[in-house]
Design a protein around this nucleic acid. Structure first.
Length: 693
RNA sequence: GGGCGCAUAGCUCAGCUGGGAGAGCGUCCGCUUCACGCGCGGAAGGUCACAGGUUCGAGCCCUGUUGCGCCCACCA
């Protein structure tokens, strides 16, 4: 509906057989290279999804919790070690208490034993650099099973990884009398129990950020689980380098920050998901727990030969399969598709910054790994469009706008133009006015072109203006080349908003307001009609990518046999069309006519060279009645005041010795010239005022 | 907590390496001018968030303040 020129013969769906094969191939190869492995790790668990979710799908939200200061008895003494926690329910899974190695307050306790309250488990008191001496009491309870930091500490010290909370969001058998309770309830009950035993030294309000599931909004439960992971550090290095060296460029460049800040701190990627829908993980297990990784179901276990195999029930994170989109869609891993050579690497990837890390970074890594080259050289991060009131567009808020409705209401060309005009290096609010502008421009072009074509004689052949062509013909050819040059630069810079402005100004102002108005008043002649045809062809080619439908429709009306405009080549700039003399002359005429239109009583006279059809644009002199005379007087007085202000400004600047001494000479001369000009104009106006008086 | 960005005409936004504030829409005043009233001509409208600083000169550079947005982050 938008007129996008896509290759509909090659649609690809992520679950197509060939695409599935590509995904499995990637998994198996990465596994064999040692990047993919299975491990017990702390993962982000969403209780409602009943699945792991990736770090990038965790949304942090503000939460007001209670920070408890809990007393842990120190074995063999009557002393207590105080630790701070917001999650007393995880006490049941504590396997150590940690302090900072340099913390004088606790140094004598390191190596000793603390007793975990309620469960009376004896755990070591350890020293770890991670602990902050200035937070809480400076002593940290270590719960490897339920906290990411603690998990790391636990791995460093070889601590057991216990689970007091299960995948159903309830307390496990480990929790003893609290087993089976939902986490929230358990927290209250455990707090009460601690109070009973006088083990809570303090409670205070604590505000912090807590992870929630991006989809369900559930509070994320960090749990230990056996999952598939992918090691990222080695894969990231060349992808990082590709952007660092400029082989891959982000537009705008500032978006590279997003990329680097993530790429420089990559952690293993948990790629398995406990979902019903997705690419199945190509791993089979035998009763003894050996795993066999292969593209298709193997006949027997690769380790023990057992024929009783069960497939891994998990599926892959959706972004795993997305990472190979640039090459798996055109034939990889088979090499039988010529498009693979022809279209890889591509050039521009256009996307939203939300998925720079989820998708762009991973396509770069996988492209380099499997194709040996970057998948694209330029990453265009386009604007995110917000609703007119500044809120995010979303279904639940009802703030979304359906592009198809826009196409119905304003047309596809208008919608394309409007979106291009709205585009920016930063986020924008949806502006229906931009789309309406596109609609008006399409309408204007349609009318102007059809009218101009009536001036083209039968059998005329498109030809650019020669040296002896009428002034306006040489002028418009010069302007066309300037506009085309600007437009190409703007498109190259991905500055589509500026490009719409260039196109609009050329079509509406130069072509319609001035050229057509001049051309239609001149006597018809065959030579000129070839120029008009040449010009219209050029304009249609130039505007076609932005306004494909209306330009194609006009193209159809051009004389002669022709194919589709969309198959024509794009026009190329030609400095030979530039004409300084025509630019200056018509420029002078436009300036003159603008002044005359604003003040029909002006004493200014048209330039001597102005031909007859130029003069026809002059406004008719107003009848010399009283009202008109008063209007002229008032206009003149306005002009006089303005000239006085300008003169005073120029003189003020020239009176500044610092300016005379330090400003560039050209600048100083510019101001002197202004002083002369406005002094002359002021004298002229005052003379006319005296005359009227 | 760290980082990035934005505050310019009633509205949506442009303003490149610092030299007299722009566009479109909206508003107001005129127009049956042989393409278009989705049009033509004209006009009004801005202490460029605030406070300092650098400079002959700042919307643009520096510092700070206020308000808003986004990204990243494992401080109990």
């Amino acid at each position: 509906r938008l007129g996008a020129t896509l290759d509909y013969d090659h649609e690809r769906f992520t679950m197509d057989d060939r695409y599935v094969q590509a995904v499995l191939t990637m998994f198996v190869e990465l596994y064999r290279k040692g990047y993919i492995y299975r491990d017990n790790r702390l993962i982000n668990w969403c209780p409602t999804c009943a699945s792991t979710i990736s770090d990038l799908e965790v949304r942090y939200e503000h939460a007001a919790d209670t920070l408890f200061e809990v007393r842990y008895p120190i074995k063999g003494t009557n002393d207590f070690l105080h630790v701070a926690t917001v999650r007393p329910e995880t006490i049941l899974a504590d396997t150590a208490v940690a302090v900072h190695p340099n913390d004088e307050r606790y140094r004598h306790l390191v190596g000793g034993t603390a007793i975990v309250p309620l469960v009376n488990r004896e755990v070591p008191i350890i020293a770890d650099e991670y602990v902050r001496t200035d937070f809480g009491t400076g002593a940290l309870k270590v719960t490897p099973g339920h906290d990411p930091n603690d998990f790391e500490i636990g791995r460093r010290h070889g601590l057991p990884e216990l689970a007091a909370i299960g995948f159903d969001g309830r307390m496990t058998e480990l929790a003893g009398e609290f087993a089976g309770m939902p986490v929230g309830e358990a927290r209250d009950r455990i707090r009460d129990a601690l109070v009973d035993q006088q083990l809570i030294a303090n409670e205070e309000l604590y505000e912090h950020e807590v992870g929630h599931c991006d989809r369900t909004g559930d509070r994320i439960e960090p749990l230990i689980s056996l999952q598939w992971f992918m090691r990222m550090d080695e894969l990231a290095r060349p992808a990082n380098e590709a952007v660092r060296s400029g082989r891959v460029r982000f537009h705008p460049k500032s978006q590279e920050n997003t990329y680097f800040s993530w790429m420089d701190n990559l952690r293993p990627w948990c790629i398995s998901r406990q979902l019903w829908w997705g690419h199945a993980i190509p791993v089979w297990y035998c009763p003894d727990g050996h795993q066999t990784v292969d593209l298709a179901e193997p006949a027997a276990c690769a380790t023990c030969g057992s024929g009783e195999l069960e497939r891994d029930p998990d599926v892959l994170d959706t972004w795993f399969s997305s990472a190979l989109w640039p090459f798996a869609t055109i034939g990889w891993p088979q090499r039988d598709d010529e498009r693979l050579d022809r279209y890889y690497p591509g050039n521009v990837l256009s996307t939203d910054r939300q998925i720079i890390n989820l998708w762009v970074a991973r396509m770069l890594m996988m492209g380099i790994e499997f194709m040996g080259d970057i998948p694209f050289s330029d990453v265009l991060i386009h604007s995110t469009i917000y609703a007119p009131d500044g809120r995010r567009m979303s279904k639940s808020l009802g703030t979304g706008i359906d592009p198809l409705e826009l196409v119905d209401e304003h047309g596809a060309d208008a919608t394309r133009y409007g979106l291009l005009k709205m585009s920016s290096t930063q986020d924008v609010r949806f502006d229906r006015g931009a789309i309406e502008e596109g609609g008006r421009l399409a309408n204007k072009l349609w009318n102007a072109a059809r009218f101009a074509l009536t001036k083209v004689g039968a059998g005329a052949a498109a030809a650019p203006p020669g040296p002896g062509a009428p002034l306006e013909d040489r002028w418009i050819a010069s302007r066309f080349d300037a506009a085309l040059t600007d437009l190409l630069h703007q498109i190259e810079r991905f500055d589509f908003s500026a490009a719409t402005k260039t196109l609009y100004a050329f079509i509406w102002n130069d072509f319609c307001d001035w050229y057509v108005e001049l051309a239609k008043r001149r006597p018809a002649d065959a030579e000129g009609s070839g120029v008009i045809l040449w010009l219209i062809e050029g304009i249609l080619r130039m505007a076609h990518p932005m306004l494909p439908f209306v330009t194609e429709a006009i193209w159809e009306h051009l004389p002669g046999e022709r194919g589709l405009l969309m198959l024509e080549s794009y026009p190329e700039p030609d400095a030979g069309r530039r004409d300084d003399q025509a630019d200056a002359a018509v420029g002078e005429w436009i300036e003159f006519l603008t002044i005359v239109r604003a003040d029909p009583g002006t004493s200014r006279t048209p330039p001597e060279w102005a031909p007859d059809h130029f003069l026809q644009l002059l406004p008719r002199r107003p009848a010399p009645d009283g009202a008109a005379a008063a209007a002229i007087l008032s206009n003149l007085e306005g002009e006089r005041d303005q000239a006085r202000q300008e003169l005073a400004r120029a003189r003020g600047i020239l009176a500044n010795e610092g300016f005379l001494a330090k400003a560039p000479p050209a600048k100083v001369e510019e101001e002197r010239e202004k002083e002369r000009r406005y002094a002359a104009r002021l004298a002229d106006i005052e003379a006319r005022l005296a005359e009227l008086a």
